[in-house]
Amino acid sequence: MTMNGARNAGETLLEIRHLEKRFGGVKAVADVTMDLRAGIVTTLVGPNGAGKTTLFNLITGHLPRSGGSVRWLGRDIGGLKPYQIARLGIARTFQDLRLFSEMTVEENILTVMEPNALPFRLSGPPLKERRARAGHVLERTGLADKRAVRAMDLAYAERKFLSLARIMATDARLWLLDEPASGLDPHSYELFLALLREEVSAGVTVCIIEHNLDIVIGISDRIAFLDHGRLLADDDPKTVLEDPALAAIYFGDRS
């Protein structure tokens, strides 16, 4: 049932060192040091406002960092623009999805395979192959019969799956997933977990922000616990979940 345990961690993909983000006087991310290693599912947990999404934004370059460094396969990616970081193989989803809402489901998938698109210039594999791959991804995410529907016209769970389908269509090695399963009904949730497991065993490395403890336990190889921008723990799930001090913070009991 779980992905935990018996897999060997591969090379270090992402090295985060003393990463810091200040908004005015507030440290949203403070001195975070952690590694994301190939094949490992890391779950970021922590109360709202702990800095989880900010950490993602710092990794992908959507926010400039205030200090520290981020290295991808040994290379400092701190000064790169978000699109350059994406092209290195780091893909992400957004908590509020940010689908290409007026485009059709199929267009949403096609366009993520076409980052270099300039007029009348072929980018990536030919359109026929891109279409086939989009069809395959939509089949797996249960969206095959919605391919001509505009993203904004999809139901809630379908939007969540389109967000996942978009990332599945990339060749990214590292996925940063921001609450991808929140609000899913039990059936969709099982489908989501099954898809994630397939992708992980196919070689994708995942870092996921999640609140639902069942999901956290069900998929994590490691749990990183953030609070007030600080990394309080980064360990195997059992150790983190059984720490009474962390549980107290997580469940809001700070007395």
């Binding site: 978000p82 893909a91 940010r98 485009m103 990339t170």
Partner: peptide, 14 residues
């Protein structure tokens, strides 16, 4: 169209 609908997502996809 992707840029029109969401610049940040378009950036995130390269």
């Amino acid at each position: 169209k992707a840029i029109r609908d969401s610049e940040s997502a378009a950036l995130a996809f390269g």
